[in-house]
Design a protein around this nucleic acid. Structure first.
Length: 260
DNA sequence: ATGCCTTGTCGCACAAGA
């Protein structure tokens, strides 16, 4: 069972790119972020034609997350609990039926939080607290759980080509990294690091200043696995080449393979 | 020190991203 996550930076601008990647990568489940589309404007038929069931949680212009699945989806839950006043579409989770087991898959678009010292950074940290509380609740079920997406957190200096360039950035603040550690310490496995402990692997390169050509990347797209999912982890990878395609997203896909 | 690009919403720029 192959599960992937990709921040596509606009589903309408990226539809051909995503369809091409899907046809080659053939994931069973895909978490998308930054669809930048209302649910009713989401081009679901392009994915249904490839055999995917589509679940979206969108909003106008910004944010928006989705889950595509070739396997049956039992239940879909939208919005991160903990703040009924939060109107930003950044969380969707679904129970995916795989043979005799059910795997809960969450598609996460964690707030960027820049610039630091503003309400945006406070929103990011509050959102991370809500995510930790929700993750703690989900983990208590002791079921396979994969929380995948754009976390907008650089966990360690090794996760940036030039860590010093990110010292003042919300993605690399001590508070952001501390919240990440508190989340993972609940018992999650960082799939990319579990499979490639020392790798210089990045998932994002800015459109600006030739970041891709200079490999000035950061690792901010992550797949966190509950113990019951980690027990089934076979392999993990990053489809780095998509960043060099025509009309690329600034993020690239991250994926895992779980045993049946 | 700042912008560097890209997208979407409209509108003849701007916000937001990271």
């Amino acid at each position: 069972m192959k599960i992937a996550t990709w921040n596509i930076n606009g589903v309408k601008a990226r539809i051909d790119t995503v369809v091409t990647w899907l046809a080659n990568a053939t994931p069973d489940v895909v978490c998308l972020q930054e669809i930048k589309s209302l649910d009713e404007g989401f081009p679901g038929s392009a994915f249904e034609d490839l055999g995917y069931t589509v679940a979206t949680h969108g909003q106008k212009g910004f944010n928006g997350v989705a889950i595509l699945s070739k396997l049956p989806i039992d239940d879909v839950r939208r919005r991160l609990p903990g703040d009924d006043g939060d109107e930003q579409a950044r969380y969707i989770e679904a129970d995916v039926v795989s043979g005799d087991s059910v795997v809960t898959v969450a598609s996460i678009y964690l707030p960027n939080g820049n610039p630091i010292g503003t309400e945006k950074f406070a929103y990011k940290l509050a959102w991370m607290q809500r995510l930790e509380a929700h993750a703690r609740d989900r983990l208590s079920h002791e079921m396979p759980l994969v929380m995948a997406g754009d976390y907008n957190v650089i966990p360690e200096p090794a996760d940036a080509r030039n860590p010093d360039a990110w010292r003042e950035d919300a993605l690399f603040q001590p508070e952001s990294r501390s919240a990440w550690r508190a989340l993972t310490a609940l018992g999650f496995t960082d799939a990319t690091r579990a499979c490639d402990p020392a790798g210089q692997v990045y998932t994002f390169w800015d459109y600006q200043a030739g970041a891709w050509n200079k490999n000035h990347g950061i690792r901010i797209d992550h797949m966190l696995l509950s113990p019951q999912a980690a027990d089934r982890l076979i392999s993990s990878g990053i489809d780095r080449d998509t960043r060099g395609w025509e009309k690329p997203s600034d993020h690239v896909p991250v994926w895992i393979e779980l045993s049946a």
